[in-house]
Design a protein around this nucleic acid. Structure first.
Length: 270
DNA sequence: AAAACTACCTGAGTGC
DNA sequence: TGCACTCAGGTAGTTT
């Protein structure tokens, strides 16, 4: 579910409700997430949340005492409710604010995470080795070219490698490669520089467009208000096996690359 | 070093 | 209905 646009959508929706607010109580209903929710998360109680930023698919909420790191995994969502709303199954974490609102992390598959970081969050093991943000200046054709040089791995796997660039998940990798006209199986080292230029632009464009539409809801993604995103209607290849290519009418193919479903148009992509 | 694969977990959908 | 099976948006970690 949540890739970068969905995390960004969630963060933008949640931020106005949490920035400047004080944490009244942290309720851990089930600590069994990807990593056990640490008891130190209660350190947040009494703290004022000063900032909310995204790094890759992680959300970071800063206080003077430490930083709350949240990840939505494959099936997570973060909603703004009030304490009187009954908990649902898989509501694992709730953070009550002095405004009377309550943030809730809901994650059926429990691949998400909630951690408390003391010190510089960017030096945390999960964050320090990440590649550049796809929407930032560091991610460029020159950067991607250097990362692809000599690699025999499929280009799709390279753009999904978080050491190369963060935030490009399975949906948007297929979409960006379609937009750039590149076969996802193509060895990264053999993709020409001009086509890498197109790919960088395609990655930026598809992520930006999706953010503007509130993300992609295939099955269960909802934003902080419980509403779906509308980018799924715009998907060109993802989850469209057998359907006609929106450009040439050829049937979209599905293959598996790196154990993940990959969709492309065999005529438009080389 | 890089590629290949495993693990974590629940729920929806499919075929019998 | 029910059972067995497949598949799913992420990513750290292990093995080859």
């Amino acid at each position: 579910m949540p890739e970068l646009p969905e995390v960004e959508t969630t963060l933008r929706g949640v931020s106005p409700h949490v920035i400047g607010k004080r944490v009244r109580e942290v309720i851990v209903r089930d600590k069994r997430l990807r990593w056990p929710v640490p008891d130190t998360i209660h350190e947040m109680e009494g703290c004022r949340i000063d900032s909310g930023i995204r790094r890759a698919k992680y959300m970071l909420f800063g206080t003077t005492k430490g930083t709350l790191l949240l990840h939505l995994g494959m099936s997570g969502n973060l909603r703004v409710l009030t304490p009187d709303v009954p908990f649902k199954k898989h509501d694992h974490l709730a953070i009550t604010l002095d405004s009377g609102k309550q943030l809730r992390l809901h994650d059926p598959r429990r691949f998400g995470a909630a951690l408390w970081i003391e010190g510089d969050p960017m030096q945390h093991a999960l964050l320090k080795d990440l590649g550049p943000e796809p929407l930032g200046d560091v991610f460029s054709a020159a950067h991607l070219h250097a990362a692809c040089k000599g690699k025999t791995a499929a280009i799709k796997l390279v753009i999904m490698d978080s050491h190369v660039v963060v935030g490009v998940g399975n949906i948007y990798a297929s979409e960006a490669l379609f937009m750039a006209g590149i076969d996802p199986r193509k060895p990264a080292g053999k993709v020409t520089r001009p086509r890498l230029e197109k790919l960088v632009k395609a990655i930026r464009d598809v992520l930006t467009a999706s953010i503007e539409m509130g993300g992609t809801t295939l099955r269960d993604f909802v934003n902080e208000s419980g509403e779906p995103g509308y980018f799924a209607q715009t998907l060109r290849v993802y989850d469209r096996e057998g359907d006609p290519c929106r450009v040439c009418g050829t049937k979209i193919k599905r293959i598996v690359l790196g154990q993940r479903s990959t969709f492309f148009c065999p005529k438009c992509q080389h």
